[in-house]
Simulated assay, not measured.
Amino acid sequence: MDLTDLERLPGADDQNFEALTRAVVSRRYGALGRMRERRNQPGVEFYLSVDHVGALGDPGRVWGWSCKWFILNGKNQLTSRQRELIEDSLKLAVTHVKGLTDFVLCLPQRPAKSDEEWIDGLRQGTVKVKLWCVENFDAELAGHDELRATFFGELTLTPTALEHAHERSVAPVRLRWMPRLHTSTSAEHHIERALLRPAAFDWLQQRTDDVETRADALRVALSSLDSDSRVDASAVADDLDRFVAELKEIIDAGRSLRPGEVRERLANQQPPATSPRALKRLGSFVWIMGCCCADSYGSWVV
Rank of each mutant, 00 (worst) to 15 (best):
D14T: 12
L257V: 08
E261K: 15
A93Q: 05
L48F: 12
K128V: 02
L195W: 01
L56I: 03
D13R: 14
S184T: 10
G153S: 06
R281S: 11
S229R: 10
K68L: 10
I86L: 15
F152M: 08
R176D: 06
S89W: 01
T79S: 15
E135F: 01
D14W: 15
G74S: 03
A278I: 00
L222R: 03
A171C: 03
G54A: 03
L90N: 07
I119N: 00
K248V: 10
E154Y: 10
W300P: 00
E154R: 14
R36F: 08
A23F: 05
C293D: 13
D2L: 02
W203P: 13
R174W: 07
A253W: 10
H144Q: 08
L20F: 05
L162E: 09
D138G: 04
D2T: 02
T213G: 03
A93H: 07
G57Y: 14
R28D: 02
G260K: 06
T183E: 15
V262Y: 07
R281C: 04
Q124Y: 04
A253D: 15
H166M: 15
D88E: 13
G43R: 07
K75D: 15
I86W: 02
Q82I: 04
R36W: 03
F243A: 10
K130S: 15
V44W: 09
E188Y: 02
A233T: 02
R174Y: 07
L162Q: 12
C292Q: 09
G11N: 02
L195K: 00
L107T: 04
V302D: 09
K68D: 05
L240V: 04
Q206P: 01
S229Q: 11
V44S: 07
D2S: 06
L90P: 13
L247V: 05
R39F: 04
Y29P: 12
E188M: 09
A199L: 05
C293N: 11
W177T: 01
G121M: 05
A12I: 06
R214M: 02
L141K: 09
L100R: 01
E135G: 07
L147P: 06
E84M: 06
N73L: 00
W203V: 13
K75M: 09
R148M: 01
F201H: 00
S89V: 00
L195M: 14
A245Q: 14
K128N: 09
I251A: 08
P159W: 04
A294E: 13
E37Q: 13
S223L: 07
L90M: 05
N268T: 12
R230Y: 03
G99K: 07
F201Y: 13
P111K: 00
E7R: 14
T95N: 09
V302H: 12
V220I: 11
L100S: 00
E163H: 12
L20N: 08
A139Q: 10
D2A: 03
Q205S: 14
T150M: 08
M178I: 11
Y29M: 10
L107I: 02
T95Q: 14
R110N: 11
G143N: 08
L131G: 09
R176C: 01
F152D: 06
D238L: 13
R38L: 06
K68F: 14
Y29I: 04
R214I: 03
P259T: 04
I250Q: 07
A217R: 14
I288V: 15
W300Y: 14
L3V: 00
C293Y: 12
E163I: 06
P108F: 02
V301S: 12
S275R: 13
